[in-house]
Nucleic acid binder design. Structure first.
Lengths: 136, 136
DNA sequence: AATGACATTAACGTAAACGTAAAATTTAAG
DNA sequence: CTTAAATTTTACGTTTACGTTAATGTCATT
C-alpha cells in the first residue's frame, strides 16, 4: 500500500520556468541575481537551480516592484528574511521593520486619498453627464 | 470702510517658489512641462507663471510618483481633469476612471498583504529574540 | 546703467532597470 | 552520438527621469 499519496512536488525550477510563471524575462531574473536579490544554486554544469524559497523571494521582489519600491529598497526589506541570529542584529532589524511598516501604512493612506480624489472626479463627471443629457 | 478684509491671496507662483515648496528641482518642473504634464502661462518676458491650478496638478503628479506610477501613467490619469465636454468623451473617461480605481484598490490590497508579511516577520523575530534572551 | 538674483533654452550626462545580440556550454530527446 | 532547445557569460544598447553645465535673458534695486 502506497504510504504517500502526495505527488512528488517539484522542488526546483529552471530560470525559464520561473520567467514564464511570473511573466518576466530570464534577463530580469539574472539581473536580480547580479545585484544580490537572488542566489540560486547551480547544477554541475553551472545552470541555475531555483528552490521554493528562491521562488517565494522572487514573488516578494515582484510585489515590491508593483508597489513602486526600488530594487535597492526591496533588497533592504528582503534582508529581513536572512538574519544571522545575533540578538543585536535582530533588534536592529526589528527597528527597521517598524520603520518600513510605517512607510507602508503611509502609502496605504496616500492611496486611499488618491482613491477619494478619483471618486470625486467621478461624481463631477456623472453630474456633468446628467446636465448634458438633460438638455439634449 | 474697507469692504474686503481678505488679504490679497497670492494667485501665482514662480518656478522656484514651487520647487522650494515641494522640495523638487526647477529642472524637474521644467521636465514635467516638457512632457506635457504642466502648461503654465508665461510673462511678457517668457518666464513661467503657475496658477493655483498648476500647483494642485503638480501636487497630484508628485503623489502619483510616490505611489510608484510612471509619469506617463500619471499623464493618463491627469487627463481626466481636462475634459472637452463631449458626453461620449465623458463616458469613456468614466470607464477609464473605474479601471484606475480598481487598480488603486488592487494596490491597496497588495500593500495590505505586504504589511501582513512584515507583521509576520516581526512576530518571528520577536520569538527568536525571546529564545536567545532566554538562554543567555 | 549696472549689479545680483532668478529665469530661459539647449545639450550632454547619468543611474536604474532591464533589452538584446553574440558566442560558447549544458541538457534533454531521439 | 547527435541535434535541438535551453542556458551561460559578456557586453553594448535603451528608456525613464531627471542632473548638470553653459550661454543668455529678465527683473527688481540701487
Amino acid at each position: 500500500m502506497p504510504a504517500k499519496t502526495k505527488r512528488k512536488e517539484k522542488e526546483t525550477y529552471s530560470i525559464s520556468e520561473l520567467a514564464k510563471e511570473f511573466e518576466i524575462s530570464t534577463r530580469t531574473i539574472r539581473y536580480y541575481e547580479e545585484i544580490g536579490l537572488l542566489s540560486p544554486k547551480r547544477t554541475s554544469g553551472n545552470q541555475r537551480v531555483f528552490t521554493k524559497r528562491d521562488k517565494a523571494r522572487l514573488k516578494l521582489i515582484l510585489r515590491g516592484k508593483k508597489l513602486g519600491f526600488s530594487l535597492s529598497e526591496i533588497k533592504e526589506m528582503i534582508e529581513m528574511y536572512d538574519l544571522a541570529g545575533e540578538t543585536e542584529q535582530i533588534k536592529l532589524t526589528l527597528r527597521y521593520g517598524e520603520k518600513k511598516l510605517k512607510e507602508i501604512e503611509e502609502k496605504i493612506k496616500e492611496l486611499e486619498m488618491l482613491r477619494e480624489d478619483l471618486l470625486a472626479i467621478r461624481e463631477m463627471l456623472l453630474n456633468r453627464l446628467k446636465e448634458l443629457e438633460g438638455q439634449k
